[in-house]
Amino acid sequence: MVEITVRGEAVERASAERASVTVQSRWSAPSAEAAMLAVTEAHDRLVADAKEHRAAGAAESWHADRLWITHSQEWVGERQPRRSVYTAAASVTVRFIDFEALGGWIGRVGMHQTHEVGGIQWSLSEQTERARAKAARTRAIADAVERAADYAAAAGLGAPVVDGIHEPGTAPPAPLARGARMEAMAFAGAADSGPAIAFEAGEIEVHAEVEVRFIAEQLRHIQGSTAQ
């Protein structure tokens, strides 16, 4: 008996279905009260927007962080007393289903000096991710079986039989390098509406890897005898 151990791999792809974005309200002022007031007002607007998008079905979920504030001393100049600076911040994260609504929202909130828009995290729905992961695992096993058969044939062995399966770990879904693109559109609408942003969701890769151990019989070569 000969043991053959191989690793099977597979990748499944699907278009992104969810987009999570975090917008932080941040402001610095000479007093804690002024910084907190500016951030509270900005944060309340973001929360109201998040609730509206959730109610309209454009967003799947949202959550907001608590407001926090820090204090620092700012250098003004030689022989000048340092100036106190208070910075307040709070953030809202929204998970969008409607990418057009996402683009419009980012265009609007980006017009405010108190808002800082973070990067977008693209993902699949739970149902799609499960389906793609299952397909990837199935194909990874098939890849391992094919590899083992190739090695067995090259070594002059019989058909390999599965003796053990080990999953070394599955990588989390990740956007492709050519993933979601973001393009600025021409400014349209009212002056305070902000420019809309068009999003083209790229594909998400779901990886699967598996190690499979096979055993294969050595083929016996029977030589016929020649009559004397």
Rank of each mutant, 00 (worst) to 15 (best):
W68G: 13
S61I: 05
A58I: 01
P81T: 01
H63G: 05
A64Y: 04
T87I: 12
A89K: 07
G77W: 09
P81A: 01
A90N: 03
H63M: 03
E74N: 06
A55G: 07
E52K: 13
H71Y: 11
E74K: 15
A58K: 13
S84T: 06
E60H: 14
S72N: 12
R83V: 03
E60S: 15
R83I: 01
G77N: 10
H71V: 01
Q73V: 09
S61E: 14
V85E: 07
R83E: 13
W75P: 07
A48Y: 07
W68C: 06
T70K: 13
A55S: 14
P81D: 02
G57W: 13
A90F: 02
Q80W: 14
I69Y: 04
A64L: 05
I69S: 03
A50L: 02
A59F: 06
E60M: 14
V76Q: 15
R66C: 00
K51E: 14
I69E: 03
E52D: 13
A90D: 00
G57C: 10
W68H: 12
A55W: 12
W68D: 09
L46F: 07
Y86F: 15
G57F: 07
W68M: 09
R66G: 10
P81W: 08
H53L: 07
D49N: 08
P81M: 03
R82Y: 11
A56Y: 06
A64F: 05
A90Y: 04
